[in-house]
Design a protein around this nucleic acid. Structure first.
Lengths: 149, 149
DNA sequence: AGTTTAATTTTAATTATTAAATAGATATAG
DNA sequence: CTATATCTATTTAATAATTAAAATTAAACT
């Protein structure tokens, strides 16, 4: 499933400007999670006159169209290509954010067990240790500890 | 279960200052969800010399001790008395944040279905319509619509 | 009690973000 | 076609949230 950013934006009445195209190119590279500043630093290479505020505006527009998703951690807004419900795990070892799939229906059932509110947009954020770092830690403890027979 | 804020802070080596006591008094009133600024505005009444930065410091200390919990929405940090896992629902009608209980074990199971990461701290944030506003909306539509026999 | 040390609070600065102003593009009337 | 008006996008400039450094206060030891 390849997203057609241009079509989605046009559909919603947004114009395709060089700045927006540059952001689209950035998105097409498939970065998992990124901040406005990440995008800004990269795009400045091709459009040196662009400002951070423009990047914010563009990312907000993209999020409104649901091309991308956003969530807040420790005072900064993160954006992501994945717009379907999932958990974002921030690894306290490597600092990266990785996606964790979750069954949307089952999660909604869990919420509905205790409340009859309308649940429209769910953000699930987790701090912990990603599978890669967990594996490495295990590896370390094995090679460091003396083997007792 | 009444939390003993003083004991928890002392336990962790924090001193009980007038400023911290004032925050504890604020917490004891049982506000569900609040920002640093909410606390600041209230505490200034009893301690006019206090600054917002002090409130931030104190709330951070409290969160470290797990007296309170914090989460970020739209660029501002929210704090809450409830530290056990639950969902926070921000109602798009009334703007309030309400707690929604959720089964921790089942939620962890859902996550573990798809990843063997370590899940240490889960933040579940939902946008939608709270039960109260949902009920009112229903009421409105009933009284507005002409009744057809 | 005086001095050192540590912790807390506040002043001042930084970072992230948004509002207002400017520039640009597109549509409409002459 | 050209000029004007309108609407959108971008940038400049300001604001809000937060944190780092400095100053103050309190505690511990001699």
């Amino acid at each position: 499933m390849v997203k057609d950013y241009v079509a989605m934006l046009k559909e919603a009445g947004y114009k395709i400007t060089p700045q927006r195209l540059a952001v689209i190119e950035y998105l097409k590279k498939g970065p998992g999670h990124f901040t406005a500043n990440d995008v800004y630093k990269e795009i400045k290479k091709s459009i040196p006159t662009i400002t951070l505020a423009t990047v914010y505006n563009i990312l907000k527009a993209f999020a409104d169209v649901r091309c991308i998703n956003s969530f807040d951690v420790d005072g900064t807004t993160w954006f992501e290509n994945e717009v379907e419900l999932h958990a974002n795990l921030m690894c306290k070892v490597c600092g990266n954010i990785v996606d964790v799939k979750i069954d949307k229906g089952k999660l909604l059932d869990l919420l509905r067990e205790n409340s009859d509110a309308d649940f429209e947009n769910i953000t699930l954020f987790v701090r912990g240790v990603c599978p890669e770092c967990k594996a490495k830690e295990k590896q370390e403890s094995v090679s460091t500890k003396p083997i007792v027979h």
